[in-house]
């Protein structure tokens, strides 16, 4: 019966994952390997294709008029990077909302102290977003804009400093992470484990969080044994990734803080500002 409960938890989290995250790993890998028939993504590989591809970016989040106003406000010198960065922020804010809904679906999460729920999200959400980027990436580039666009790694590296430094660490991490070959049902459990980290600074009541995490960890361990019977030590390897992840988030937040100081025209999305303030 205990194993049955752990399997039910895995199924529940997988269903929530499918419900709240629009681009699954299965779909992303199909797009990346050209198995989606005639709907190949638009490729951004230089400034010209970026301009052409911009109509795809943000089309879901922003009313056209507002987008045009913001676009025209940012057409000064160096505007391209800032404009693209702005689009990334809108998508990230939307993704934070998706992760929040997923977190709320973890059994027991909404019964935690509300301040602790906030702390878990504040510290966990960027880690979750970086893990969720991995399925969208390969060594040559990344899918963006819900899989409608493929942006090359070389193009991202060609942007001016410090924008060119933002994605390279995520590519390095993702290429290694993808060798673990997790599927969407494994990912759902791993994301829940990350969210339920009992060592986040400022938590008021650690014990119930650790208890919830322990159950999800057991479910993840069983899931990996059943789903990847030939992959030795996969559970241990996956848990080790959590250490690398914290370093990537720390570096990412420092880079954003640097941008805030150096880029006169940069405005940070209020939700992202809230998350990053006093984070690391």
């Amino acid at each position: 019966p205990e194993a049955a409960d752990l399997r039910a938890l895995a199924r529940h989290l997988y269903e929530a994952y499918l419900k709240y995250f629009p681009l699954t790993k299965a779909k992303a890998r199909a797009i990346l390997s050209g198995k989606t028939g005639d709907s190949a993504p638009f490729v951004i590989h230089d400034m010209k294709s970026l301009m052409e591809g911009e109509q795809f970016i943000n089309c879901r989040q922003m009313p056209i008029q507002e987008h045009q106003q913001q676009t025209s406000a940012l057409t000064a010198a160096h505007g391209v990077e800032l404009r693209f960065f702005h689009s990334c922020q809108s998508r990230s804010a939307e993704a934070v909302r998706e992760v929040t809904e997923f977190a709320k679906s973890i059994p027991g999460f909404v019964d935690l102290d509300l301040n602790d729920q906030v702390t878990l999200l504040k510290y966990g959400v960027i880690e979750v977003l970086i893990i969720m980027m991995a399925p969208l990436m390969n060594k040559d580039g990344t899918l963006i804009s819900y899989g409608q666009i493929f942006m090359t790694r070389e193009f991202l590296k060609s942007l001016r400093k410090p924008f060119c430094q933002m994605m390279e660490p995520k590519f390095e991490f993702s290429v290694k992470f993808n060798t673990l070959e997790l599927d969407d049902s494994d990912m759902a459990l791993f994301l829940a484990v990350i969210i339920l980290s009992g060592d986040r600074p400022g938590l008021l009541n650690v014990k119930p969080i650790e208890q919830l995490q322990e159950t999800v960890l057991h479910s993840l361990e069983l899931q990996l044994k059943l789903n990847h019977p030939d992959s030795l030590q996969l559970f241990a390897k996956l848990l080790q990734k959590m250490t690398d992840l914290r370093q990537i988030v720390t570096d990412h937040v420092h880079l954003i803080q640097l941008l805030k100081k150096t880029e006169v025209d940069m405005c940070l999305h209020p939700l992202l500002q809230e998350i990053m303030k006093d984070l690391y």
Binding site: Q61, S90, A93, T100, V118, L121, P270, L271, E274
Partner: peptide
Amino acid sequence: KEKHKILHQLLQNSTSPVDL
């Protein structure tokens, strides 16, 4: 609470998403 106003809203608002 004020420091994390939007996160609070996202957590408590179960149906309509906060205007992002």
